[in-house]
């Protein structure tokens, strides 16, 4: 209880980490819904890995003397740029190949995942000074988040959330029934590009802040869980964000209370929620 009161205190030392987790927990499931419904879950595994490779590459460049800014913040900014560029390039290549129906989707994503995983490790191993930083990103250590970073995260994720809500009908229609979307005068390519861009930005920024495991977990597990227990697209959107926020808050509390890494604790908790709801659903069906 003492720790809980400490956490909700506005002067709590690690408050930025808590707020970042809550933002991720609230917004990521909204994007994750499209991953689940468009059957792109594998992409949800591969893209955070690609983003990670981008961060590792940017840190390597930083170490060998390529800087955007003269002070320490340059490293994080470069990391973010690397993540955005790598993720967006990967997602657009995959989208073009998907549209041209070249080969199998799973093969392409598997290849990208393997390539990104291997190159991230190589970039880190070539960069002894950046190892600690990149490894903490990989582990999902959401501890030290500067104010400026939190505000940018709020601005970016807030904008993405507004886009998803404001253009919800277009994204849903284009994802569900492309042909009908065309007959209703929708520019399918434009909406697909916007959705991919949102996915690219949310993953790159999220990986840089909370790590690939956390992003993957919050993208997919709340959406999968909510789909299991809701009827209708609007309840799905609302419930998935509620699950994300609850898991993020309780996960943070558990990790603080028992001195565990926050990211893996959050994801493990999401899995527990999924399993419990699944068992509950079976039980209700059994009783009927």
């Amino acid at each position: 209880m003492e720790q809980l009161l400490e956490i909700i205190n506005p002067h709590f030392l690690l408050r930025n980490a808590l707020y970042a987790g809550l933002i991720v927990g609230f917004v990521c499931p909204q994007v994750g819904i499209f991953f689940v419904l468009r059957r792109m879950i594998l992409l949800g595994i591969a893209l955070p890995q690609v983003s990670n490779a981008g961060i590792a590459f940017a840190f390597l460049l930083h170490t060998i003397g390529f800087h955007f800014l003269p002070h320490m913040e340059s490293e994080k900014l470069m990391g973010l740029t690397g993540a955005v560029v790598f993720t967006c390039v990967a997602i657009f290549i995959l989208a073009i190949l998907e549209r041209k129906r070249k080969g199998f989707t799973e093969n392409r994503i598997g290849f990208i995942y393997a390539l990104a995983g291997a190159t991230s490790i190589l970039f880190v191993s070539w960069n002894p000074y950046g190892q600690t930083e990149v490894l903490s990103v990989l582990k999902g250590e959401i501890v030290s988040i500067p104010d400026m970073y939190l505000w940018s995260m709020l601005a970016i994720y807030g904008t993405i959330f507004l886009c998803l809500v404001g253009f919800h009908r277009n994204f849903v229609l284009v994802s569900y029934d492309t042909d009908t979307a065309v007959t209703l005068g929708k520019n399918v390519i434009l909406w697909d590009i916007l959705l991919y861009l949102i996915i690219g930005v949310i993953i790159s920024f999220g990986v840089m802040t909370v790590g690939p495991l956390v992003i993957f977990g919050f993208l997919l597990i709340p959406a999968i869980t909510a789909r299991m227990v809701t009827r209708g697209i609007v309840p799905l959107c609302i419930v998935s964000s509620i699950i994300g926020v609850i898991a993020s808050f309780i996960g943070f509390y558990i990790s603080y209370r028992f001195d565990l890494p926050t990211g893996p604790t959050d994801v493990a908790l999401l899995c527990v929620i999924l399993v419990l709801l699944y068992l509950g659903k079976i039980l209700i069906r059994f009783k009927r």
Binding site: L37, L173, Y176, L184
Partner: peptide
């Protein structure tokens, strides 16, 4: 149409009005 989408029948019909829907 993919059955993974958890649309209600009413939500599917509502899509017919999306052509005029304002963001």
């Amino acid at each position: 149409l993919d059955e993974i989408y958890p649309f209600t029948a009413g939500e599917v019909v509502l899509m017919g009005t999306f052509g005029q829907a304002k963001p």
